[in-house]
Nucleic acid binder design. Structure first.
Ligand code: MN
Ligand code: MN
Ligand code: ZN
Ligand code: ZN
Lengths: 140, 140
DNA sequence: ATCCGCGATGAGAATAAGTCTCATTTGCAG
DNA sequence: CTGCAAATGAGACTTATTCTCATCGCGGAT
């Protein structure tokens, strides 16, 4: 949950202009669910042009403020992120996404690289299941 | 690299009809690269209807004959698979995809689940980097 | 404070990607 | 062989994303 201010500073640091549309989109994304589609953003910020939404989404990914989540049906959603490498756990019941990091996972991947001769310089791990809260619920 | 025959048996086992279009698409996919888009298949099998290509792609995923690969730009490609749970390593230089399985990874994920209280019933891991062959090449 | 250049924007068209409809075909169980 | 439910395909349709280009406005320089 990155503060608007931090994000704006990140933008500036990258040499990007701090424009009204970018501010508006940022705010819109913060008001949206924990993950959202490009179209959600278009709808949530009708005053901003469609092209700008897509451009901004890409920009924010580049500077690490927004990340992609691959849902279990293969579709992609976006999500504000506090930056840094991490993974996702998507609850199939309530739809919530949680961020995860794990040294163990990174270690195992490094070992895999060593063992196979591949040079892994990025990876993506998405997990699907049920969150503790949903598991605790009575119902089916 | 599953033999056509095995796939056809898998189809039959699932109670699906062994139709000419399905045969044609299967052959087309085998002739394509190690991964391909839906559009690639449409092009490679012009005699088969567009809708059937998409339907068949989904069907083959359902029966485990085709899997999705999430590329590093977030786009999705398809790939014939010998079935079973596995992960991908995508070479950013030559584009080749290799399948991977690792007990260590599965173990670590199970531990993560235990520790966090999440119930993980599926996951997706894609790795990006360079394959041994490309690393061995002289050039930049 | 003002200016100016270039990055950024938006309306809308264009393209890409995937889905739907429904009349016709066809695999295959009986 | 027959009958019929499953499967197909043409092409329209919907949805997603990119492109174009005239105009705008952020922010470094003065
Ligand atoms: Mn990781
Ligand atoms: Mn796995
Ligand atoms: Zn949940
Ligand atoms: Zn390679």
């Amino acid at each position: 949950m990155p503060a608007t201010e931090i994000i704006e500073r990140t933008l500036a640091r990258g040499g990007y202009r701090l424009t009204a549309p970018r501010r508006a989109l940022l705010e819109a994304m913060q008001d949206l669910d924990d993950h959202f589609t490009a179209e959600d953003v278009v709808t949530a910020a009708p005053e901003v042009g469609r092209a700008t939404v897509f451009r901004t989404l890409r920009l924010m990914q580049d500077i690490g403020v927004v990340c992609q989540v691959v849902l279990d049906d293969g579709s992609v959603a976006y999500r504000l992120t506090s930056g840094g490498h991490h993974h996702h756990m998507v609850c199939s019941q309530c739809g919530a996404v949680a961020d995860f990091t794990s040294h163990d996972i990174e270690d195992v991947l490094q070992q895999l690289a060593d063992r196979t001769g591949y040079e892994i310089d990025a990876h993506r791990l998405e997990m699907y299941g049920r969150c503790p809260r949903c598991r605790a619920l009575p119902d089916e």
